[in-house]
């Protein structure tokens, strides 16, 4: 566990809006903590996929946070990781079936990455660092904040990649017919470059803040 995460846990009780906002911005899981990268890069080639994936992850995060924090006094320390993984896997399986039941196409385009939410380190790290030490309501808010931070980040990536790579957003073309798509943006390399670009902006913002 990184020292930052420890510090989060050690801080005095902040207000619930604070708890929510921190995940969205100050401790954004993707842009600031840089965790849970695999789905961020893999399914962000269109805004729609990114949003669906983000919401699925957020759901699992909130649910597992709630369950884990409510069971936190019941789970012995030695088996906590094993039980956390059990709980997370359960919710992921549920989400997986739910998405299949909604649309086979969407499930196909998200592919195995729904199952891979299980190993998204963000979820486990929230469980470890927050839910296992805080009350149910706080954990829920933390999950919501982090989850929406994740959705926000995925959306940032997905929209840039779709706009440049496909000339559209959510499937709607936004450029004239003659627009030349930058195909690289939809390719894996484009994912790396776009995330790097967003991190660059965040870094720039951070450095500027540090200077003033």
């Amino acid at each position: 566990m990184s020292p930052e995460l420890k510090n989060i846990a050690l801080k005095d009780a902040p207000s619930s809006t604070d708890e929510f906002i921190k995940g969205l911005w100050r401790e954004n899981p993707v842009f600031v903590q840089v965790i849970g990268m695999c789905p961020v890069l893999a399914v962000s080639n269109s805004a729609e996929n990114a949003l669906a994936m983000g919401l699925a992850t957020a759901f699992v995060l909130v649910m597992s946070n709630v369950l884990i924090s409510s069971l936190r006094n019941f789970i012995p320390k030695q088996v906590r990781i094993a039980t956390y993984i059990l709980i997370i896997a359960t919710f992921v399986t549920m989400v997986d079936y739910a998405i299949q039941a909604i649309s086979v196409d969407l499930h196909k385009s998200l592919g195995a990455f729904i199952s891979l939410i299980v190993v998204n380190c963000m979820i486990l790290s929230r469980a470890e660092a927050f839910a296992s030490k805080n009350t149910v309501s706080k954990s829920a808010i933390d999950g919501l904040g982090m989850g929406f931070g994740f959705v926000f980040a995925l959306f940032c990536l997905g929209s840039v990649r779709e706009i440049l790579g496909n000339g559209s957003i959510f499937g709607f073309p936004i450029f004239p017919e003659s627009y030349q798509e930058w195909i690289i943006m939809i390719l894996p390399a484009g994912g790396f470059f776009t995330l790097a670009f967003w991190l660059l902006i965040f870094n720039h913002y951070k450095l500027k803040k540090a200077k003033s």
Binding site: P188, A189, G191, F193, A196
Partner: peptide
């Protein structure tokens, strides 16, 4: 440069590697 230090530069290299693996 400071702005790209850390994860950003790693991602950029990963991007270039990904390009070359194409």
């Amino acid at each position: 440069p400071k702005v790209v230090k850390g994860t950003a530069i790693t991602l950029l290299i990963a991007g270039i590697l990904s390009l070359t693996f194409m």
